[in-house]
Design a protein around this nucleic acid. Sequence first.
DNA 1: TATTGTTATACTCTATAACTATA
DNA 2: TATAGTTATAGAGTATAACAATA
Lengths: 146, 146
Amino acid sequence: MSTAAGTPSTDPPESLVYLLKHAHLRLNELVAAELAEHPVSGRELAVLTVVAGNEPISQQQAAARLGVDRTTMVALLDELERKQLLSRHPNPADRRVNIVEMTPRGETVRAEARAAADRAEGRFLAALEPDTAAGLKRALRTVLRG
Amino acid sequence: MSTAAGTPSTDPPESLVYLLKHAHLRLNELVAAELAEHPVSGRELAVLTVVAGNEPISQQQAAARLGVDRTTMVALLDELERKQLLSRHPNPADRRVNIVEMTPRGETVRAEARAAADRAEGRFLAALEPDTAAGLKRALRTVLRG
DNA sequence: TATTGTTATACTCTATAACTATA
DNA sequence: TATAGTTATAGAGTATAACAATA
């Protein structure tokens, strides 16, 4: 028993808050569906993505790049380490700091999950012309810089 | 003690999920700041907005238009009724249904809060050319229809 | 039987405060 | 004293299941 909360039946408000909230919800659903057979959630994929960059980073750097609190990052990393997709090691130069690194399996999972998430993004944007979709992302990047 | 979670310091991911999530968070913060001196939150303003339409609606209709569950709507309406901004009456034609209506004070509060929220939206979009901002909203409406 | 509103409950995501170990 | 990571905890926001009143 439920109201189809994800599918407003009539007259959705035009406010930008509404549009951003429901666009985010919709895309999250599509990503979750594409990742259903993968061993990571969308949030976990985001963590793998920032950790997979060139130089190794600390937990706090990973949290800052994702825009989440460092206490939130702890639980995310706990789970990814449990799945053996990444590892934590104290930085010898400053043993308060944990360096986070991908495992080989983590890199494989990340690449496959990234492809699945990109398919979800493609389906989300399917109703837009390619240059309109690019314009949407560019506009969002611009407002987030401001 | 905290990481500045709302202000990623470096290299924010380019993924659309990230952009939508943080755009939504940012706009919510701006709206909350503009509404600080008003008696309603952004969520409550959204409820007042759908209730303020021409013909009276039921609780479930209000929930559907907002894209929230009917059980969530109960608590939102409880609070707005407590603040005497709207009222609930059984529909004489079907006494299972509650008709939700604005009070005169509710309409005043709604109009003032709407103006404040629109200012927040304007500040959020300030970095964009007017036609780019319009294109952003149009693109979001398009993907949500699809 | 089915539906509207309601309550109880639980789950996710998030943040704050306080602890530990290191510096 | 200050910082990185951790733990405990609490607050939004949300959804599911079950109930009462009504159809």
